Computed example of a mutant assay.
Amino acid sequence: MNRLLSSSTLAAAILGALACAGSAHAQIMANHNTNAPVNFAADRIEVQDRADRVVVSGNVVVDQAGLHLTAARMTVAYRQVGSVEIDRIDASGSVVVTRGNETARGNVAIYDLNRRLITMLGNVQLNQGANRLTGGRLLIDLVSGRSTVDGRSAGGPPGSTTGSSGRVSGTFTVPQRTTKP
């Protein structure tokens, strides 16, 4: 019974953390209601108490106030210090976050709750209507509010030889102007 209670408490903490993850993406997708209820579904959830993590896998879907996240798998790392505290959420397998006409895609997304950083890696693509931006990595600093897209698909500081040295590309729409004779 104690293990079941622990798992139930942990599941509630995961839902709270997913709400925080939604707020992180709200930096790109403005005006998201992070206080709204979070709904999630998956084919499987596995609580790994000894490893202090939860693995949610198989068609993972998370919804919160119009924000929709899908991935093949999510791993939630936590620690128990009286209550459950979520440290990090990793989503992998065609991660897609959508809200209205805005979409962020990547192979992997990492949300470091302690450092307040979100990183999307691998084939990153941001779309807003007809506007598109692609690169290898998207880094969102929730403290400064600064987002950076670069061509690297692995870690390392700018200018380092770690990871690929791809390029960032994009297409932006231009407002149509009518000229009068």
Rank of each mutant, 00 (worst) to 15 (best):
A19C: 00
S83F: 01
R44W: 03
L117Q: 12
A13Y: 09
S8H: 10
N114S: 13
V61H: 13
L10E: 04
L15C: 12
N107L: 13
S7V: 10
T119Q: 10
T70P: 07
N31A: 15
G106L: 00
M29G: 02
G151S: 02
R146W: 11
R88P: 02
S153K: 00
D49T: 14
T98E: 10
H32C: 08
T134M: 04
G163C: 05
T98C: 07
D112E: 02
P37N: 14
R115Q: 09
V62K: 05
A91T: 08
V84S: 00
L126K: 11
A154E: 15
I86A: 02
T178E: 01
N101P: 01
G82C: 11
C20L: 12
L5W: 11
S153H: 03
S160P: 01
L113Q: 12
R50S: 10
A109R: 02
G22I: 03
V84H: 01
L126M: 14
G156T: 01
A42Q: 00
H25Q: 06
T162V: 15
S144Q: 11
V97W: 04
L133H: 05
N31E: 15
D63Q: 11
A36R: 01
A65S: 15
K180P: 10
F40K: 01
V168C: 05
I14W: 05
D141G: 07
P181E: 13
M120G: 01
A72K: 14
G145A: 11
A51I: 08
R79W: 04
I14L: 03
T161Y: 08
L5S: 14
R132G: 02
T75D: 08
G82A: 14
L126Y: 12
N114E: 12
R3Q: 15
A12H: 13
N2T: 15
V84W: 06
E46W: 09
T9Q: 15
A154G: 12
V143Y: 06
A26E: 13
G159P: 08
T103G: 02
V174S: 13
